[in-house]
Each structure stands twice: as C-alpha cells, then as structure tokens.
Design a protein around this nucleic acid. Structure first.
Lengths: 204, 204
DNA sequence: TGATATATAGACCAAATGGTCTTTAATTCC
DNA sequence: GGAATTAAAGACCATTTGGTCTATATATCA
C-alpha cells in the first residue's frame, strides 16, 4: 500500500500545445534532413513553437532529436508487432512486413530515407545515446523476424536447411540495405521483385 | 598527326604538396565524420594545408568532398575488378569479394562505416552531384556482381532457380545493409556467419 | 638577378549556429 | 481580482561556420 502523494495541479496557464505532435513534426524534419543539417529555425518552423517554448519543453536540440528518434523507433516496433503478430499465418506476416518495405523503399518514399539508417550512419559512431538506440532497435527487429521465421519453420514453410536465426540476420541486413538503395529511388516493380526473389530462397 | 602545343612549363615555385595525398587525407575525415560534421579546421589539420592552399587547390569544401568521394569510388571499383576478375574461378572471386566485406564490417572497421552509404543517406536526397555518384556506383557494383554470378551459373555453380541479375540485386542490398549493421560493431564471427549463410542460399 | 609562381600563417568577414533572456499577452485556479 | 504559470516574439549572445585576402617567405626559370 503506497502513500498517495497529492497530485499537485499546476496553478497557472496550462500548456497549450501538443508535445507529442511537436515531437512528431520535429521527427519529420530530422528524417528528411538528418541531424546536423537540421538547423534550429527548421525545427521552429516545423513545430510552430517559439525558441523559448521549444527549449523549455525539450532542453536542447540533441534531446529533442533523441525524443524524435524514440518516437520513430516506437512506431516501427508497433508496426512490426502488428504485421508479425504470432497469431497470424507466419508467412503472411512476413509478406505483409516486406510489403511495407517495398512501399517505403520505392520512388519518392524511398528518397526520403529512413531515420534509423541515417542516424546509424551519421551518429552511431560518435553519439553514444544514439548508438545505443540503434543497436537496441536492431536487436529487437532481429528478434521479431527470428520469431516469425521460427513460426514459419514450425509450419513447415521454410526451405530446406534454412535456420531461423541466421536467416533473420540476413533478412534484416537486406532490409537495411534496401533503405540505402532506396535513396536512388528505384521503381516499385524493382523493389518488389527484389524482395520476392529473396523470399523465394527462404520460403518453401 | 597533331600539333604539339608547346607544353608551357609553369614559371614560378612549383607545387610542393601532393594533391592526391591531400584528397586521400580529406577522404579519411569525411569518411569518419560525414560531410556536415566535418568542419574546415578538421580538413586543414588532416591535409596539413593552409586555408589559402586548400581553397586554391580545390575551390571549396563541397568540391573537395566530391573529389574525396570520387577517390573512394575509384578505390572500391578497383578492388572489385581485382577480386571479381572474370579470369578467376567465379565462386572464388565472389568469396574473396565477400571476405573483404566481412573484414570491413566487423569490429572497429565496421564502426568506421562506409563513405558511400553515409553519403547516400546524408546527401543523396539534397545534393544532385553526390546523388548521381551514388546511383552510378550502385549500378556499377550491381553490374559487376551480375557478371560474376553469370560466370558462376555458366560453371554450374548456382543453386537451382537462381537468376544472376536478381541475385546480384539481392547481394548488393545485403552488402549495403551489412555496412549499416556494421555500425553496431558486430564480431567477425557474426559477420562471417551471416555472409556464409547467404551465400549458401545461392551457391551450389 | 629579376620575374613568376606558390605556400603558409593568420587576420578578417558576414552569416549562421545553438542557446539564453526579457517582455508582453494569455489563460487558468483560488 | 490576484497569483501563478505558460506561450510567443524577438532581442541578444558567444561561438563557429565557410570563405577571402594580405603579407611574407620560398622556390623555380630565364
């Protein structure tokens, strides 16, 4: 039984902007331009906040970036959890998951890139906080794909000799590479064909 | 028969530093830090040039960057041409080529990253000159891998149903993804195992 | 020797950087 | 109404940015 610390209602004018919406808008800017190329005025324009409000709410540019990155990661994990839901046919789940990648890696979507891959390349080496997040997301992604492949194996859907954990590692590398290649804006046809050809090697 | 335009020897003090060596040193900095995070003093320190000399020789930061990128690309293509030499056993060539990637994507080497992948993510969207170079390198890399796989197919070394051009596209994506994952500094064992597992799916 | 050309060091510059602070207006609770 | 809290606008700040320019020394050729 815990003492109920009296929840002190703030007395003055309440916060009038949506913090999460601001994070999301900031995320959009970092996503399109990268960390270093994003200047403060870009963030102010996107969030429609004043300098004062932004610094009061987030501390500094770097902290805001980390929050945006966390948001991006949370979105990605949520999507994976839906698409790779273990109650689903595992192969269907994998196909749905990969279909999302085809979408995100062709044409203009592809050009926009991926905040995680961009951050991995731009900051993971120098910025420990960012590096930790990249590594942990990578592990989480790999684990989910491994689970999905294990499910497929149990259902007898994997090709002979395919081992879920190493296949998952391959798939994850491949998908991150797709994000890089996507910067050259390949057609949807091409992306789709590449993904299909890979899956053909692993799925029976 | 051409008129021999009289090669006008420069009259004054000759250039006393090695331009290509300077490009190489600059390349190292861009490689480790990325374009935006590299400040002019970093480049002066690395090249041991004065501001004046650097601007006289290269114009501006962006031009120097493009020269460094071109150098990186030339090095990469040279390496590929050696490792994937068509006079070699095609599968041996592929294995040698992939062995190089294992080396460059584990431990500290991996952490350092890849100037091409970093540039793709940081600049390809905004900087047309850089974007062109990325796209053209990507095509060149894909073409060479396709040739190697065609050779392997002719020698009956490809697994059933593997088509050289789509397999090449997969391999290229995978390798670029390895460069991203490398930022989390995986062990050599892990990188090697992943590469081997992928190759097992394509090589008979 | 004199003309030519280059290198270095560093002063210098305007613009942009991330970040702080003050002022004023707004909005809530008591 | 009054205290409390927040937001917006923008002045302000030191530092850093990429880039130019000058002064001086040095090296080459004719």
């Amino acid at each position: 039984m815990r003492h109920q610390t009296p929840v002190q209602l703030p007395r003055g004018r309440p916060r009038s902007f949506d913090v999460e919406a601001a994070v999301e808008r900031a995320m959009g800017v970092f996503w399109s331009r990268g960390y270093h190329a994003t200047a403060l005025p870009d963030l102010l324009r996107a969030t429609k906040l004043s300098r004062g409000s932004l610094y009061a709410a987030f501390g500094d540019k770097h902290s805001l970036f980390l929050r945006a990155l966390d948001r991006y990661i949370a979105d990605a994990l949520t999507r994976m959890d839906i698409e790779l839901d273990p109650r689903r046919e595992p192969v269907d789940g994998l196909r749905a998951y990969l279909a999302g990648y085809v979408d995100r890696t062709s044409g203009a979507n592809g050009r926009r890139g991926c905040l995680l891959v961009a951050t991995a390349m731009e900051l993971a080496g120098q910025d420990a906080e960012a590096g930790r997040r990249i590594a942990s997301f990578f592990k989480a992604m790999e684990a989910r794909v491994t689970d999905a492949l294990s499910g497929a194996k149990a259902a007898g859907k994997l090709a002979d000799g395919v081992e879920p954990s190493s296949a998952a590692r391959i798939l994850v590398c491949f998908l991150w590479g797709l994000r890089v290649v996507a910067k050259t804006a390949p057609t949807r046809i091409t992306s789709q064909a590449t993904v299909d050809a890979l899956l053909d090697r692993f799925i029976r």
